[in-house]
């Protein structure tokens, strides 16, 4: 896992716009990964409540958000008063991408990083 990384998973609980199977597979994979993560019932609701958790997440250096369209995610954070710096954030869209692809991109980074990491610490 990259340093200062955080994963945020949105369950979109109150709507049926994200395929249930995709949500189930991604959440199972997260639980199996052993990684820490944040899971929210509904990012829209948190944005409307201006939930301070969004502020904490917006400050994370490498934030990965598993939710819906990136444009929606960015403006939901912005609407909550905690805008995201777009360069910091990766958004995985469960409305359009298959679970397998999301899981692979979300969780296998660690393996790729391990494979490509220099043996003698970080480059100067």
């Amino acid at each position: 896992m990259a340093e200062n990384e955080r994963i945020l998973y949105c369950n979109c609980t109150y709507a049926k716009v994200v395929p249930e199977a995709t949500k189930r597979e991604v959440l199972k994979a997260l639980c199996s990964s052993g990684r820490p993560f944040n899971a929210v019932a509904d990012l829209c609701e948190m944005s409307a409540r201006k939930d301070k958790t969004l502020g904490e997440l917006a400050e994370v250096e490498n934030l990965k958000v598993v939710a819906c369209f990136p444009r929606a995610v960015h403006w939901l954070f912005s609407g909550s008063g905690f805008p995201l710096e777009k360069k910091q954030v990766q958004v995985f869209n469960m409305r359009e991408k298959p679970a397998g692809e999301i899981i692979s991109d979300l969780l296998e980074t660690e393996l790729q990083e391990a494979d490509s990491a220099p043996a003698t610490g970080p480059a100067s």
Binding site: T13, L30, P36, F37, A39, V40, A41, D51
Partner: peptide, 15 residues
Amino acid sequence: ISGLLNNGFTVARIT
């Protein structure tokens, strides 16, 4: 976690 999310809760899994 699935049950908590379906009931509207915010969850953090930490290690």
